[in-house]
């Protein structure tokens, strides 16, 4: 089982248990991003996390966006990079840039 499959299985089990779930997927990277395109993070409404989209630098910000997407149902395309003030805030120390797609599992 690949780590990406594992995240999907976890997301499916959370949903089966009645939780609202969002999936975040790295769709593009530049420079020294720690996780390649296709890496996934599952977030539940109760705050559970599975998988990763970075080395831990942006997971908090992605989880916030995921909670928004759970409420609105609208997907989001997030941009993180050194030129991005928000990313600077959350600290992409590796100096990489990446795009993360966030969608509700519904």
């Amino acid at each position: 089982m690949s780590d990406s499959e594992d995240v999907l299985a976890t997301a499916a089990s959370w949903r089966a248990a009645g939780e609202t779930v969002a999936l975040a997927t790295v769709v593009e990277t530049w420079g020294s991003s720690p996780r390649p395109a296709g890496s996934r993070l599952a977030v539940s409404a109760s705050g559970r996390l599975a998988g990763s989209v970075s080395g831990g630098c942006i997971e908090g910000a992605v989880a916030d966006a995921a909670k928004q997407t759970m409420q609105t149902g609208a997907p989001q395309l997030l941009d993180f990079g050194i030129s991005d003030e928000r990313a600077w805030e959350v600290g992409l120390a590796c100096g990489g840039k990446l795009k993360v797609f966030v969608e509700k599992l519904a």
């Binding site: 999907l8 949903r15 969608e103 599992l105 519904a106």
Partner: peptide, 10 residues
């Protein structure tokens, strides 16, 4: 992602 699509993927 719809639950149906996730099920198909799995």
């Amino acid at each position: 992602m719809t639950p149906d699509l996730l099920a198909a993927l799995q």
